[in-house]
Amino acid sequence: MEDMLLKQARALYKDRLRIALAAFIVVFSITFYLFYNPEIISFGAVPPVGWNQGWTQGFAVVASVNTIGFCLSVALIVLIFRFWSWAFLPGPALTYTLAILKGILGTKTAIRHTYGKKIKVTLENGLQFDVNCRIKEKGTDEWFVYRLVSTQLHREQLRNIALRHGFGVKNNRLVANISNNELHHRTFLLTKALMLASPSI
């Protein structure tokens, strides 16, 4: 069973990908036109000796300032797309995540959403953990998976506490990769584990 919000988010993301691809084709053609329609400015590269005239003319077009500009613009377009897919979570998925976190942690807990699909949670006792979301897990059919990472904790019993709550330990942090239907329960257990591992007690 999958949550309605996540279903919507997935459809939305797929639609946006299609739109982005269509837009990319259009923008690519326009960029091509803009850079090669004006006069070709050569930067003085000399074609190898012995080429016939057709090849030499082609070389003059390829080895030109226009090509450099064109490649830079395409790289910029790709970069913008990469940033977009790195930074933003589809709206419904964000609503789902925040609703669950607020529901389990209460309204007093500070929940801050930052770029890069990351949500920072600060508990009342000052301990923090991050909830990182990935839209799709590579190589599987799983959508919207999360990675929970706590702040560094220094306790002798840390590993025991972590294991007893279903977490692993990496660099003194509690970590776990979870699927979206586990978000509620495992965040709850992480909060409980953090309370136990808190140095103030």
Partner: peptide, 20 residues
Amino acid sequence: SGKSRSLYRGVISHLKENEM
């Protein structure tokens, strides 16, 4: 129902990370 490779990447490796 899925492929066992996707079971490995999505589930088993995570269970291993949590030492289960």
